[in-house]
Design a protein around this nucleic acid. Structure first.
Length: 231
DNA sequence: GACCAGGCACATC
DNA sequence: GATGTGCATGGT
């Protein structure tokens, strides 16, 4: 049963890659049948997607939605406006997303970087090779692997797989990977096993998040009711 | 009232 | 290199 047994081939077992790919496809198909197309990431613009990626760090998305609504109401959801906004105003707007002092600073530094190095154009920054963009994002304060990869996949639409808490939990509970697997090995696992397609990566990640939210929470998982059988 | 949520940076050992 | 801690709001 999902989450309770471990019958997947080892992540290191090269000879069973075909089997792993088949299981991953079956997982996706089952989730897609249950949830339907999710069309991620939520956001009207690429900048909103990037802002959401920072705001959702260790935070429920419902709180992020409130913060983004505040930013829209204050007309701060552009690179220039956010860059020029007083820190206190920015912090007040993102307050519902928690960690508002850190996140307002991270947003400001993100915008300052775009203004300084890309003439204020997020589009210019995003139109770099994925690995160049990734290194650039990771060098910024407050942007780690998951945040950077979310921006690259959903805003730049380049095929980098996003690993988050749900991804790790679902895959490890299924026995496909060790529960203490680090970010990059798990990302490489997906890059090796899935076709490099940004739209597919995005939808796959979205389906994993929905499965996670609904059936694979940290405590009180609903394994028995989960429509996605991984083993 | 405790626990959790789509992380990350930094200090300490 | 591994581990622990601070950051903070809002839902369950």
């Amino acid at each position: 049963m999902y989450g309770c047994t471990a019958s997947w081939p080892s992540i290191n077992s090269k000879r069973s890659n075909a089997d792993v790919r088949r299981r991953l496809r079956a997982l996706y198909d089952a989730a897609f049948s249950y949830f339907g197309p999710l069309c991620w990431w939520p956001g009207e613009t690429d900048f909103e997607i990037c802002v959401g990626a920072i705001l959702t760090q260790n935070t429920a998305w419902t709180n992020v939605e409130k913060a983004i609504a505040n930013l829209k109401n204050k007309r701060l959801l552009t690179v220039r406006a956010m860059h020029q906004a007083p820190r206190a105003v920015l912090a007040a707007a993102v307050r519902p997303a928690g960690y508002y002092n850190q996140k307002s600073q991270r947003l400001h530094e993100f915008c300052a970087h775009i203004v300084r190095f890309h003439r204020g154009s997020l589009n210019v920054m995003l139109h770099q090779p994925a690995l160049v963009l990734r290194d650039e994002l990771l060098a910024l304060n407050g942007i780690g692997p998951e945040t950077a990869d979310s921006m690259i996949l959903y805003a730049a639409r380049q095929p980098i797989f996003v690993v988050d808490a749900y991804t790790r939990r679902i895959l490890s509970r299924s026995g496909a990977v060790p529960d203490d697997i680090e970010y990059h090995p798990l990302q490489e696992f997906f890059h090796l096993m899935l076709p490099p397609d940004a739209e597919y990566y995005g939808e796959y990640h979205a389906q994993l998040v929905y499965v996670g939210k609904e059936f694979c929470r940290k405590t009180r998982p609903r394994c028995d009711e989960c429509p996605v059988r991984l083993t």
